[in-house]
Amino acid sequence: MNEEWRLLITEDISAYKNMAMDRAELVSISKGNAPPTVRFFSWKPRAISIGYFQSLKEEVNLEACRNLGVDYVRRITGGGAVFHDKELTYSIVIPESHNQIPKNIMESYGRICGAIIKGLNHLGIKSSYVPINDIISSGKKISGNAQTRKAKTVLQHGTILMDVDVEEMFSLLIVPNEKIKDKLISDVKERVTSVKDILGKNISFSDVANAMKKGFEEEFDVNLSKGALTDEEKDLTEKFENEFFSTKMWNHRR
């Protein structure tokens, strides 16, 4: 019988809570208090997340965010700034010692991205992993991914773009040189795609989630069984949301 992992689906929650939940799962799973967990989620309000090492003020147009009602949050993972709008975001939290997870970080990116690639395949989209942390389809990026390892536990989260508005994205991000903004926007349009672009129609969050569930089950040879946060994880989520991810101290720290 296949190993059972937990599946969480948490639609339409805030940036702060989303990042707090990933970290809460990381703590509880590192202590052996919950099984390996895959979560599919979306963001409400829409939000920008920045990588752990990025400077908030250098990357994000805070005034535009306020005007458009877009939140911003610093992740605990490295990588770049992401505008979380029409997408499915996933996270996987699993002990580093699990036999399905390569010890080598780059290999583990490839393995986890393999689940996303299989999931996209269920939607009729052919894609491939391009190191360091992208998945591309027809030469264009459809998914970005970021991993951290803490307390001998792996957390990887990433996006699957369902639709993308590059102009709006660039109104929220700081462009180093305004003179080349138009060129940058046209370049990014050439380099980024979405489920809707490829299939020519809108696909619902739950259809993408169902495809991704199958992708993870096939890649890791497990059953994903729908569950809920433990009481410990609920408490930790609230704590991390209030004490870290919603605070100026955390978000403006670099």
């Binding site: 990588g51 752990y52 090492f53 990025q54 400077s55 250098e58 605990i76 993972t77 490295g78 990588g79 770049g80 700034a81 970080i105 360091i132 942390n133 970021a146 991993q147 951290t148 390892r149 803490k150 670099r254």
Partner: peptide, 15 residues
């Protein structure tokens, strides 16, 4: 010195 960017470092606090 302040080092920022979209790279990855493990552990992150090392920066």
């Amino acid at each position: 010195l302040k080092i920022t960017g979209d790279f990855f470092a493990y552990p992150e606090e090392a920066i």
